[in-house]
Computed example of a mutant assay.
Amino acid sequence: MDPAAPPPTLALLDEQVTHCRACPRLVEWREEAARVKRKSYQDWDYWARPIPGFGPPDAALVLLGLAPAAHGGNRTGRIFTGDPSGDLLYATLYGLGLANRPESVRAGDGLELYGVRITDPVRCAPPENKPTPAERDTCRPWLVREFDFLRPTVRSMVALGGFAWQALLPVLAAAGYVLPRPRPAFGHGAHVVLPHSDGGPLLHLFGCYHVSPRNTYTGRLTTPMLRDLLATAAETAGLTVRR
């Protein structure tokens, strides 16, 4: 499918994303993971396709990750679902009053987000969770088009990790936001306010360490750190949270 051919709604864009086969290495890996499976998931029928964003089309807060996990989103069909990263993220959103329940099991399980949308710069599971720069750039038009739909309502974005931060900056520039020079550096708690060239509403960009086990198990990112940053980003976007 061609992300340059704009569909009329975000829901149709999400459907288009799921048919993309633009990156041969990622297609091979996501489908191989679905054939081999983990021992504990032998009874699962893996999704094994690109993962669309998740959340309402009029979200005020957007969270950007990295890419689906081979036995997480690639299995369950939903971003940040089926692995420890997603367990922490959705439980935190629920605790803040931004989700209707604390766990995400699979696409279509009834989970809802309130004012929040989650998406990735790379939509397919990469080997060793490491997409290449070329794969990131090939996938970028999907994110550009997604942001076109979200721009009227989004007021805050959180980049979960340095990869997301770097992937997001050219998307925001393409959308007309004025980026400072030199380009803002990623860091946990980084906060950049971006004006739009047409004089539209400001966009608040926040940096947050990724919710991967590598960060959470070592204490680099704690639950209170994540909760505080997401609460601040949500409040900046005009959402009401439970502090």
Rank of each mutant, 00 (worst) to 15 (best):
V171P: 10
V154C: 06
F147C: 05
A185H: 09
H191C: 12
G161I: 11
G162D: 13
A159V: 04
G162E: 15
L143T: 15
V144C: 14
A159E: 02
W165K: 02
L179F: 03
D148E: 15
A190M: 12
P170T: 14
L169D: 02
L143S: 06
D148H: 14
R151P: 04
S156Y: 03
A190D: 12
G161D: 05
W165I: 06
W165H: 12
P180S: 11
L143Y: 00
P184K: 12
G189V: 13
R183M: 11
P152W: 00
L168P: 05
L172I: 08
A164Y: 01
F163L: 06
A173H: 13
L160R: 03
F147Y: 13
F147H: 04
R155D: 12
A185D: 10
Q166P: 02
A164T: 06
A164V: 03
G189R: 01
L160D: 04
L143D: 05
R145K: 13
G176Y: 07
P170A: 11
L168I: 10
L143F: 02
E146D: 12
A159M: 08
G187M: 01
M157W: 01
V178P: 00
A185Y: 02
P184N: 11
L179Y: 05
L179S: 05
V144S: 12
M157A: 13
F149W: 08
P184W: 14
L172S: 09
S156N: 09
V192N: 04
R155K: 15
W165Y: 03
F186M: 10
Y177D: 03
M157I: 15
P180N: 09
A185L: 11
A190W: 06
S156D: 07
R151D: 06
Q166L: 13
A174P: 01
V144N: 13
R155E: 10
G189F: 09
